[in-house]
């Protein structure tokens, strides 16, 4: 095991791996944000009174949580460009070949899968808000939007925080799958490095440590956020 391969600069792969880690963080953050948006939307559908919306959201979470992310990545990777071409041709009359950027493909796939888990977390958090509080807000004459922003959102955010922390860990780890379609993040960079130096263990072990650092630090961050969010809550 030749650790000098991992130094910073032209001689080693340290800087490449570092920028790979930045790419991992970027794609994970983008997918997480997208996933939370999906989560809010589908949780609202699951909580709505319309059975058709309910069914759509149920299908979404069941299918996404029952099918491997890798398969979804292949689907979007192989069909995304085609779909985009059909839309571009139909709407703008643009017939040239276009490809979905790998970053966007990855973000869509991981975001979709994170969204399914976030849906359940947010739905649970909404249900955890006592009905009496909404009734009380209504009784003192709060409008619907005010009830939403003043009563529902602050508490849902607090209840959902631990679950959303888990979803973040999941998202961060799932981004490693995007390496199979060529996004140069930690895993891909490690593959490139091990391919050209014939030292796969060194590189994958470095990747393992990078992921360990990322998950440990973000876990700390979420724990801190939880403590902060609960500072006004009486402990039982």
């Amino acid at each position: 095991m030749n650790l000098s391969l991992l130094v910073w600069g032209d001689a080693g792969w340290g800087d490449e791996l570092f920028f790979g880690a930045l790419m991992t963080i970027a794609v994970a953050a983008a997918s997480y944000f997208l996933g939370i948006l999906f989560g809010i939307g589908f949780a609202a559908m699951k909580l709505s009174r319309h059975p058709s919306l309910h069914i759509i959201a149920d299908i979404y979470t069941t299918v996404i949580r029952g099918i491997p992310e890798l398969l979804i990545i292949y689907l979007v990777f192989f069909s995304g460009g085609n779909l985009l071409r059909i839309i571009a041709k139909g709407v703008f009359g643009y017939g040239e070949f276009i490809d979905l950027p790998i970053f966007v493909t990855g973000m869509l796939c991981i975001g979709l899968s994170a969204g399914a888990y976030a849906t359940e977390v947010i739905r649970g958090a909404v249900l955890a808000v006592p009905v009496g509080q909404i009734e009380a807000a209504r009784a003192i004459g709060m409008s619907k939007t005010k009830r939403f922003y003043r009563i529902l959102v602050p508490q849902v955010a607090r209840y959902a925080l631990p679950g959303l922390g888990n979803v973040w860990q999941l998202t961060l780890k799932e981004t490693s799958l995007i390496s199979v379609i060529g996004l140069v993040e930690i895993m891909r960079q490690a593959s490139i490095g091990s391919g050209s130096t014939k030292e796969p263990f060194t590189f994958y072990f470095a990747a393992l440590l990078l992921y360990l650092v990322l998950t440990s630090f973000s876990n700390r961050g979420f724990l801190w956020a939880e403590v902060r969010a609960n500072r006004g809550v009486r402990e039982v």
């Binding site: 981004t175 895993m187 490690a190 091990s194 014939k198 796969p200 263990f201 393992l208 992921y211 998950t215």
Partner: peptide
């Protein structure tokens, strides 16, 4: 802690490709 905070893909590659180094 080690296995839950790293992606499965890294673990698989580390065992399959990484073992080749030794």
């Amino acid at each position: 802690y080690l296995f839950r905070s790293t992606p499965l893909l890294v673990q698989i590659f580390l065992i399959y490709y990484g073992s080749g180094q030794f």
